[in-house]
Design a protein around this nucleic acid. Structure first.
Lengths: 157, 157
DNA sequence: TAAACTAGGACGAATACGGTCGTATATAGG
DNA sequence: CCTATATACGACCGTATTCGTCCTAGTTTA
């Protein structure tokens, strides 16, 4: 456990791609095909990133998505939080939201500190640092599949 | 997201309690009542901790659980891993288990680094550092419920 | 006007998770 | 010896979440 959701995963992959595409809008279809992600699911992920001000969209026939801000200012933490919701280690989060068992809870504070560290790990990394697959590069064919598409990461059983 | 499962939560709470109990075995029932955790669920958590060599059990009428090793040597990472399985940020983990989309994946390495940092945050904290509720302390009554048991953290809706 | 795109709601399937039940086994004490 | 209280462990179930699909609507360019 302690996994990123697939959607968060898709978001990061997409942002790396969009960042590498520079000024040219990257369409959802393009990203989906490149990374073997279900198109409609990806679309919703991207839309949420637009709502959160990470991406901006350009509609119409040559539309797509562009970064709304410089890649260096978008942290992994922000992206994950945008998709998966607030980063809480436990149900009774970091805020004032004291759970009813408050007084009985014996591990609040240490868990708190751990959460801080995790958060800072996610905040330290921006999408500028994510590697990327340039849109104009030929799609790399892994191993020797003879160019035949193979089941991808996004669709593991 | 990025939450600890409740079972991992229960494990940490229990270990803090057992650690504070010293040589006296703490029974599952005792821990469950103290922290308002479903007994049977907790039992399974504790049993798994025994299998993983974190706790040792003593059967029989005055039995219960004891730490198998000094509290300083048991890390939160180990506990969480024992309960929730390996700490992977993504499905295609850190190991050699390269997913089929391997070549297409553009964010492997940075995510890797983040995982390392998360892991180290969890490894840095041992259960000796977890606060605890001593078995011989009176059970604190939160707020003014007049001593009537109220719904606890473990059973939030 | 047609084609390629974003926007977004509704819905179903698969899965993980939390929790319960039943049963077997071990141990201390009367 | 017998009973009460423990752990051990597998089977089961309901539900919440996640993943993915379908469908419709609106936008922009050629």
């Amino acid at each position: 456990m302690l996994r990123l959701s697939k959607k968060a995963d898709y978001a990061l992959i997409s942002l790396a791609y969009v960042a590498a595409a520079g000024d040219k809008p990257a369409s959802a279809r393009e990203i989906a095909e490149r990374h073997d992600i279900p198109l409609e699911l990806l679309a919703k992920v991207l839309q949420r990133l637009v709502q959160r001000g990470v991406l901006r969209s350009q509609q119409g026939i040559h539309g797509g998505y562009l970064l709304a801000r410089p890649a260096e200012t978008v942290t992994v933490a922000e992206v994950v939080e945008a998709i998966d919701g607030p980063l809480l280690l436990t149900v009774c989060g970091s805020e004032e939201e004291r759970c009813e068992q408050f007084a009985k809870c014996n591990i609040r504070d240490p868990l708190h500190r751990i959460r801080e560290r995790i958060l800072s790990a996610l905040t330290a990394c921006t999408i500028a640092e994510l590697g990327s697959l340039r849109p104009d590069e030929p799609e790399p064919v892994p191993f020797s599949t003879g160019g035949v598409a193979i089941a991808g990461r996004a669709r593991r059983p």
